[in-house]
Design a protein around this nucleic acid. Structure first.
Lengths: 248, 248
DNA sequence: CACTCTTGCTGCACTGAGTGTCACTCGTAC
DNA sequence: GTACGAGTGACACTCAGTGCAGCAAGAGTG
């Protein structure tokens, strides 16, 4: 908002007109029942222009995700070694929530649409996947060299995204009435308690102490969790132990 | 090959011929460069028949996922209260691995395809999503009534899928050389250690793994918790390990 | 002012996925 | 023999997405 509506509205560009027209038609008669020709007809522009602004019909439903993804990538790239990684990806996830919260009614409408159109759901998945990959790549770098570094990175990224989406969706289902921030904070705290500890001490996310808030520089820990079969031969256990310790 | 040209060979149905023709062309000239007409031409059937067997061009790349998803759903539906939920969803995930492992070369070829064709990657995501939803729905039921039941369910399902895929992909990247089962077991054990506890057992101060069979219906445990200094010499760790296991 | 170069838009024609429909054929039942 | 039903092929059609050629408006230069 702000001053953009003062004069001839400065620049409500074709892109915005297309989004507006598209959503009006999608809500009126449904996504699949609306053709691109219908949209450009209502928006009063040429058909070719639609595909100049949106590579596909699905893209018009998620007009701001590209920017948000860029924001997240930049945010993660700007992170230093002083940030605790899990906390950092949780904060990155909050960027997505912020985007949704900026436009509650739009987000709720879009949610209803994506819920009932399989094609849009599939498209949304690919968007979410890119967010998840961004988080995972960041974590992979931070965990590089650690025993199960990429595994840990992938799992944590997935957990963060799942927790975020769980809260986000429940907020969307409430028509934007609930407190989105609080819900996401709660959900992310759950993940942080589970994974946010210094080394590899996964504790049950019940109510254990909320890990010493500072970013642990992961000093030599006192507990080693060895993931293996108890009945495995000893040599195998030693092998696993070496990997778990990152020695060779 | 084989006896298929002798007699009508019992039943090498059109469906299989389509899959074979499709993959041959996809590998030769690429997915996007191959039209459905090319496929039906090579398979020697009518164009309409293709869409009788596969709702879309993408589906021919994942001909067995529908069945596998049904298997998983059945597996979870057949679960009783005696099964520990996290372990159960891990076992369900192993069904997917089994399907991949049944046909290593096919799986590896498909992996290469999906990795470089964005459309197929998106389609695969929607398939994976359905697996994840199946797991999450099962967990939601099992955790119904618990404080953060749905959150916990969603996060665990996502973690299981991420761990499974992490291992699966590394196996696929190895051209099917590595031991897929072991890799997936390892990855899933990681998730199980994180979430599979009776919920409130702090991992810390014990000497060995989780309380011996008391109360736990899940058989001999897979986890050894070793309490020692990470920087201790290896021989000392091995000694501790032996004590922890009660061996000598 | 004339010229041109660029930029953004339009219209048009074309490919290819996916669908609805109808006619054909073959095996089985009567 | 005829009737019927299931599976198949052939044709026509819609619609998303792309390549290309023109066209209008603005910026810069002489």
């Amino acid at each position: 908002m702000s001053s953009s509506s003062a004069v001839p509205a400065a620049k409500p560009p074709i892109r915005d007109a297309l989004v507006a027209a598209a959503f009006r038609l999608f809500l009126e008669r449904g996504y699949e029942q609306t053709t691109v020709d219908d949209i450009v007809g209502l928006a009063g522009v040429g058909r070719r222009s639609f595909f100049r602004y949106f590579p596909s019909k699905e893209d018009v439903v998620f007009p701001d995700h590209e920017r948000c993804l860029a924001d997240m990538t930049a945010f993660l790239a700007a992170s230093g070694a002083e940030h605790e990684p899990v906390r950092r990806v949780c904060d990155a996830a909050r960027l997505v929530l912020r985007m949704y919260a900026e436009n509650p009614t739009f987000s709720v409408q879009r949610y209803r649409l994506t819920r009932q159109v399989p094609g849009l759901r599939a498209y949304e998945l690919s968007v979410v996947w890119r967010y998840e990959r961004a988080l995972a790549e960041y974590l992979r770098e931070r965990y590089a060299g650690r025993p199960d570094g990429t595994l840990r990175a992938d799992v944590i990224a997935a957990a963060v995204v799942a927790a975020h989406n769980n809260a986000l969706r429940s907020w969307l289902r409430s028509d934007g009435e609930d407190d989105a921030g609080a819900a996401v904070d709660h959900a992310l705290r759950y993940v942080q308690v589970t994974y946010g500890r210094p080394a590899d001490t996964p504790a049950a996310p019940g109510r254990t102490g909320p890990a010493p808030a500072s970013g642990q520089p992961e000093g030599p820990e006192d507990v080693v969790i060895l993931v293996s079969r108890r009945d495995a031969p000893l040599w195998r256990l030693v092998q696993e132990l070496e990997t778990a310790l990152g020695r060779t």
